[in-house]
Design a binder for these strands. Structure first.
Length: 567
RNA sequence: GCCCCCGUAGCUCAGUGGAUAGAGCAAUGGAUUCCUAAUCCAUGUGCCGCAAGUUCGAUCCUUGCCGGGGGCACCA
């Protein structure tokens, strides 16, 4: 509808110029918006104000000229008006809204899909938590945001891959091994001090016990470094598979798991280092190797190889990101915790240094989650190993509630996650509010079927026969209640909501859209009976609510939330 | 000190330059002989942190300041 109005305006402006009603042929991009206030019409454009200076005419005069030349062959307009400083407001005929329902039924799960991504290969890397402990609530938010963003991009026509980067190399893995080995020694009664920098959680003891059960005291006889390395590998593998299970129970499935260690094994890190040394981006100073990230906007250069000869995390990360592009991705998106924001300039610099455009790389910085219970902060101490894991949260509040709540804020806003609130089955909790729409509609459809109402024939066929087409137009005519038109209008906005959400990579826009649509539906439901006495009217209303149901299911799917038939 | 994010109704937050700034919660009162009351309806609240600038027009863009959070390693 919006596009239709836009075309009409462009045509009118062109005609007006050709007929001499407008002096200049210079036309700005036409912007159409849905006014906040209903009295301002269904759509409005600011074009006459924008054109005023170029045309050297008063905005309202321009608006008049445009309206005079406006052609409306399909008769979609009820009226137009000039308002305020020069807005042109468009009022759409009630019946002109109806065809969108056919479109929704036709496209079904594809309604709202677009091709703005044009098949571009994009990778979304998210979670990527170190395999040194279980996922916590913050990772859950990253998972929800990353997964939904990837889903939305896919729906917008991108060729998307979801990837998890495993930091299975370096110091923290060694620390992990040391932690497990120390606990292992304790199991055999050996006095050991457990340093503060070691991982404190009980899961470390569990892993140590597993090793004891399997290997007995064999590790005690071994060279300590070897024993630690054994513990490290086993623990990382163990923890990683736990992470994978947690993510699966959260409904997140990755297309690819990428090992940091593999970058060393394959020689990618060395090759990267040689490459940038030859190009002069890596140089030696104070016995270390530095990357000249300051050439590309970073505040200072960064170390890639330390004095002690060990590479930094940054080094493998450069190689990793080079590899992403080598694998053919046009665009690379990283989802990081907000505490990593200082890391962005150097990462972006390394990508620019390799000749890539900086807008091929995006970082979504996800802000912290404050875990609450009844409004009170839940005490968590990583040091003491006391924390609530993502799995705990999923078990307590359920996957749907958790995912939805993670997506009820812009990712850059800190999020309060209240465990009690997440379980509440009231209006406070938006998940159920939206899901309830789906369940309610399902229930009506069940009832309808029980009563033997024919409701599926003709609704799904993409090429309706003559008879079906006229039947559909007959039932559409029954939809004229204000609440019905409101609902349909809300549904027309779904595709653009998805597009904007994809362009900005902001999944919360879908969340808000769904809450809004849900509200329009509940209001309608409470005022009008779908299964009415008049069979034609009933068909019309079923046609309407089935479209609502499709969008709810469709939108929830993008967020990774289920659409229940019953609640 | 430098960098990033936030500052909008009592609370939690939407609002990618438009007209009279919105929603939920909280508060009060109401709605179900009938499709799920996990629902709906009614009642009001704002120097959009402050100040300049850009613009026909700024909650939105720019700059400065104030307040809150986070980050500034040869850690990850």
């Amino acid at each position: 509808m919006k596009q239709k109005i836009k075309k009409m305006i462009i045509q009118a402006v062109t005609d007006a110029y050709e007929k001499g009603a407008l002096p200049s042929s210079e036309f700005p991009e036409v912007e159409i918006e849905v006014p906040r206030i209903e009295a301002h019409g269904d759509f409005s454009t600011n074009i006459s104000m924008v054109m005023a200076s170029v045309q050297k005419m008063a905005p309202r005069k321009i608006a008049e000229a445009i309206i005079t030349h406006l052609k409306d062959p399909d008769n979609v307009l009820e009226k137009t008006e000039i308002a305020g400083p020069g807005f042109i407001n468009f009022f759409i005929n009630t019946f002109s809204w109806h065809p969108v329902l056919c479109e929704i039924h036709e496209k079904d799960m594809e309604y709202g899909a677009s091709n703005i991504g044009n098949g571009k290969k994009v990778q979304v890397e998210f979670v990527s938590a170190n395999p040194t402990g279980p996922l916590h609530v913050g990772h859950g938010r990253g998972a929800a945001v990353g997964d939904a963003t990837a889903n939305i991009l896919l729906f917008c026509g991108y060729d998307v891959q979801k990837e998890y980067y495993i930091n299975d190399s370096g110091r923290q893995i060694n620390t992990l091994g040391r932690s497990v080995f120390l606990r292992y020694k304790t199991l055999f009664g050996q006095e050991t001090e457990f340093p503060e920098d070691c991982y404190q959680g009980d899961y470390i003891v569990d892993i140590a016990t597993e090793i004891k059960d399997e290997k007995g005291d064999a590790l005690l006889a071994q060279d300590e470094a070897e024993a630690i390395s054994y513990c490290a590998r086993l623990a990382a593998k163990n923890i990683l598979s736990g992470i994978r299970e947690d993510l699966e129970s959260f409904g997140v499935v990755f297309d690819n798991w990428y090992s940091e260690q593999s970058l060393f094994d394959s020689g990618s890190v060395d090759a990267m280092m040689d490459h940038f040394r030859t190009r002069g981006s890596i140089y030696e100073k104070d016995g270390a190797l530095w990357f000249k990230t300051s050439d590309y906007g970073d505040e200072k250069d960064r170390v890639v190889v330390r004095q002690n000869g060990l590479t930094t995390y940054f080094a493998s990360d450069i190689a990793y990101h080079q590899d992403k592009f080598t694998r053919g991705f046009d665009r690379v998106v990283d989802v990081w915790g907000a505490d990593h924001h200082g890391y962005i300039p150097r990462m972006a610099a390394s990508i620019e240094a390799s000749g890539r455009d900086k807008n091929q790389f995006d970082v979504i910085l996800v802000q912290l989650v404050n875990l609450l219970r009844e409004g009170e902060p839940v005490a968590m101490s990583t040091r003491a190993g006391e924390f609530i894991t993502l799995q705990d949260v999923i078990s307590e509040v359920g996957r749907d509630a958790a995912r939805f709540i993670f997506l009820t804020r812009h990712y850059e806003s800190p999020l309060d996650f209240d465990l009690e609130l997440a379980k509440k089955k009231t209006n406070d909790n938006p998940v159920f509010y939206v899901q309830y729409v789906h369940a309610r509609i399902s229930s009506i459809l069940r009832k309808g079927r029980e009563r033997g109402i024919n409701m599926s024939e003709g609704f799904k066929t993409s090429n309706p026969s003559q008879g079906q087409a006229s039947e559909i137009s007959e039932i559409l005519r029954t939809l004229k209640e204000p609440e019905e038109i409101q609902l349909i209008k809300a549904m027309t906005r779904y595709p653009e909501t998805v597009e904007i959400s994809g362009e900005c990579m902001e999944p919360h826009r879908i969340t808000y859209y769904l809450m809004n649509l849900a509200s329009a539906f509940h209001a309608y439901y409470n005022k009008h009976r779908v299964l009415a006495d008049d069979p034609v009217l009933t068909s019309g209303r079923l046609y309407l609510i089935m479209a609502v149901q499709k969008i709810i299911r469709n939108g929830l799917r993008l967020l990774g939330v289920s659409a229940p038939e019953k609640m």
